[in-house]
Every structure is written in C-alpha cells, then in structure tokens.
Design a protein around this nucleic acid. Structure first.
Lengths: 228, 228
DNA sequence: GAGTGGTCTAGACCACGTC
DNA sequence: ACGTGGTCTAGACCACTCT
C-alpha cells in the first residue's frame, strides 16, 4: 500500500496530473526539482525518483542545466506481456493440454538463419505443436530450437516451458502480423483454408547465441491485449 | 555516461548477469540486499534501486521477510511504440498523404459505448480515413471521437495528429487481432474480400472521459515490430 | 517476534550543458 | 562559470509476513 504521504509514486502522479490538466503544456519548462520538492513538501530525491519515471515514460525531457521540459512528442506506448501458453490458457479458465504434431532434427533453411541473424548453424530441433484449451485448438506453434535439448523433454512438456526454465535469454525480437491459413495450419486449427489468423513471432538469443524462434498462430478471432 | 563505478544501473546489469548465466536458477533465493551490497561494495539503497528495476521487469519476485526469489515464470515482454501514422510512413521513405472517406456526427452504437466503458455518450464524430504512402493505401482507420473537435480540422489534417497535440490522455487500451476484409475494407485497401488484415485497436481516456477509439487496418502483409 | 524489503531524508559530490 | 539534473550514501523508520 501507499502508506507514505509523499511517496515518489504519489509525487509522480501529482506531476503527471499537471501535464494532463494542461497546467504545463508541451515544450514548457517545469520548475527545478528542488522547488517542486519544497512546494510539495518532500525531499529532492523523491522528486528525482518521480521524474526518472516520467522521463522513462516519455512524458518529460530532462537535461542538466537545461531543466525539465514537457515532452512535445508524447508517443503511445503499450507493453505486451507474453506468458507461457499454459498460463495464458489456464487464466481463461480452460484446461490446458498440448500435443506435438511433428518433431525432427534438420538444418535450418535460409529464412530461419536470417531470423537468427546467423550465417550458419548446426542442425536444430524443429517442432510443430498444438496448445489446446478444453481439448480445442488454441494455438499452433512452429518452433526452431538452436540449443541442445535433452531427449524426451519435447514429448513430455511444452518446449517453451523447458526453455524458459533452462535457457534464459538476454535479447528478444517480437513482431506480429495477420496470416491466411494454409492447408497445414487450417487442418491443425480446424478452420477453412484462407481463414485470417493472428501470428506472433518471437526470436531469442543469449548474447550472440540463438536460442529459439517460434511462430505462434492463434485460433481465428483471437485478440491480443496489451497492458497499459 | 556511467562514470560511477557502482551506479544502480551497473549493479542491475551485474545481478541480471547472475540470472542469465544461470548462477541463480528460477525459484532460487538471492542473498539479502544488504549482503549483496556488501559484496559489491555499495550502499543498500543502490541494490534496492537495481532490484526495483529487476522486479519491474519480472526477473525477480520480492517479498518482505521472504527475500528475493528468481522469478519462475519469467514472461516475455515487448514494448510497442505507436507513432503518428505520418511519421511511420515517412520513416519508410514514402511520401505521406491521407484522405477522409467519410465523416459524420452520430450516436455511438452499443459496441462503441462498451469500448469506451460508458453508459451513454452525446453524439460523436465518426471518421473513416485512409493513410497512404506514395499514394498507395497503407492503412484504413475507423475512428470515433468523443471530444469536441473544431470544424474543418478533420479535413485539413489527420484526426490523430490533432488529438495528440490537443487532447492528452492518461489511459490507453490497446489490442490487436487478425481480420478478414469485408467489402468496405477490401475496397478501401484495394484487396480481395476475405484477405487477412492486421488490426490495431486503441482507445484513450482522460480520467473517465473517453477521448477517441480507433481501429487501424493495415495493408495485407504488414508486420508490426516491437522494440525490445 | 524478528527478519527482510520499502521508502524517505538530508547531504554530498559529480557531470553536463547553457550562458 | 555556474546552475541543474544524476547519483550515491548512511541512517532511520515502517510494513509485511514467515516462524
């Protein structure tokens, strides 16, 4: 809870209010941290902490000696949080299950290498699997895994779950698009060919070492929501 | 620059390294802040600041008395930065233009009210417009505006650009999905009906006051990329 | 009850950029 | 050169929650 009267979160909200009420307009200069602190009745560090947050949100621009300006180019920002599919499905009150449709070891084709930003790679695991909610197809995933995986893992559990627990990454690329189902996808998800499906593509690395790349094709009508 | 030897950013990177190198595994307990501080040679507050960031990133879970645990369900997070369409199009080296296809004042239907989370609303502006790059359709937008707009604005410039400059919002809802083109959309974007299009929906408020809601339908094949 | 994180404070010094 | 933000420190007290 916010039991503190002048927590930096409160100060942050207070100053944000000034910007939203147009008390200070884009391009305008805010008072010095110290003056704000005195006015609110808190320490300068508290104002600084609040300002760091506003700056990170893109609400203000701060410069030494230049002071704090209300940012003129406030952009919309939204964060996508991608849970493990099991959690996602269970959070909707459905029973989770998954089924591996195919699994093989293969040399990645050129487009996968490009995705990994690698020149060459040794043979990788290539897995196609279905994640189901209440035994109905929820999403189809097509995954390449560029790290060694203990045999048997891919049958007994979702590749994703094993990877997040054992292969931390420090870089991720995410993109999404709309795709018309080809025959394979249509069959997997039980929709007519040509149906519009939402596709989320993720590629991860640990340093320069590729870990995995996966295309997740969601059931028709799926809506991906962002947290504010 | 990071001229400080033990800035909280460095400490943050250091501890993050422990997690990425699997020195501490998911579910495992990290030392107390104070011990980490002593080991690194900095103040506890510095470790705390770094830990706040790791916690906000979802890398660790912190509990009073319970200590700091490496999060067992590290979620993928990606941030979508949504620029004004004109900037987006110009950044691709194309010449921007836009064209209002229809504009009217109307009482919002039930689904729009639901999107705005409002019971009732006075009549709103309803605008359908095309944003073009090099005179080819880039995206089609269907927008409802719940705030008064000076007449003439909507013809001379993009509604979005006017809104970002004059109506700051403090809450935004974002979601996206894949949609098969209906006749109207197909005609606007010049694709066959049924084509899969990517749809980005945004709704904004200032406090409880709805500002605008817009569905942006991108040209077939469009890929939305996230910043890491 | 006691241990751990959560936050604030006051002061100090540094670094950057404008004047 | 000087004013402003950037960061660290040391200490204090609070709040949660496990034992």
């Amino acid at each position: 809870m916010n039991h503190q009267r002048n927590s930096w979160r409160n100060v942050h909200a207070e100053i944000k209010g000034w910007l939203l009420n147009a008390r200070y307009l884009p391009g305008e200069k805010l008072p010095r941290d110290e003056d704000i602190a005195q006015q609110i009745g808190c320490a300068r560090s508290t104002v600084v902490r609040a300002m760091q947050e506003l700056s990170a949100e893109g609400m203000v621009d701060r410069k030494r000696k230049g002071g704090t300006l209300v940012s003129p180019h406030r952009v919309s920002r939204a964060t996508l949080e991608i849970p493990v599919h099991r959690i996602d499905i269970e959070a909707r009150g459905m029973t989770y299950s998954h089924s591996v449709l195919s699994q093989s070891q293969a040399t990645p084709p050129a487009d996968i290498l490009k995705r990994f930003q690698s020149e060459t790679l040794p043979p990788c695991q290539h897995v196609q699997a279905l994640h189901l909610g209440d035994d109905l197809p929820f999403l189809y995933e097509d995954r390449w895994i560029a790290v060694p995986v203990p045999s048997g893992i891919l049958d007994s559990q979702s590749a994703n779950e094993w990877l997040v627990a054992h292969c931390p990454y420090d870089r991720i690329d995410v993109s999404c698009s709309a795709i018309a189902a080809d025959d394979r996808l249509a069959q997997a998800l039980g929709t007519p060919p040509g149906t519009a499906h939402f596709c989320l593509r993720r590629t991860t690395w640990a340093g320069a070492q590729p870990i995995t790349t996966v295309d997740s094709y969601y059931q028709a009508g799926h809506v991906l929501t962002f947290s504010s």
